[in-house]
Amino acid sequence: MSRIDEEQVKYVANLARLSFNDQEIKTFTTQLDAIIGFAEQLNELDTEGIEPTTHVLDMYNVMREDVVEPSLPREEALKNAPLQEDGQVKVPLIMEAD
């Protein structure tokens, strides 16, 4: 019995902003199914009432004074942007022009 089918893989790929061709979808479906099947070993354990560990240290908020400090100059911050214009990062059109 498969745990995950091609339609689910396509759905997850869209959530993850990844695109695959038909062959890749097939391969990923098989591999993810095997990995998820492997992970289902965890169901052998009764974890009723066990607190999940999200972090190993005792976490607490770390506060500091809100002081203005020097930050990166704009040219520096834009240095790695693939496309820029007028001191801003440029991306494809996100809304239709009126």
């Binding site: 689910q8 893989v9 959530l15 993850a16 990923f28 993810l32 965890l42 066990i50 607190e51 560990t53």
Partner: peptide, 29 residues
């Protein structure tokens, strides 16, 4: 990509408790 897919699946609605939360409980053990 395989790990992004696995992680996105484990965190997706309907699977979160079965996989992600379960794994974190096992982490406690």
């Amino acid at each position: 990509k395989r790990r992004i897919m696995l992680g996105t699946f484990a965190l997706s609605s309907g699977y979160y408790d079965a996989y992600y939360k379960k794994a974190q409980q096992v982490r406690t053990l």
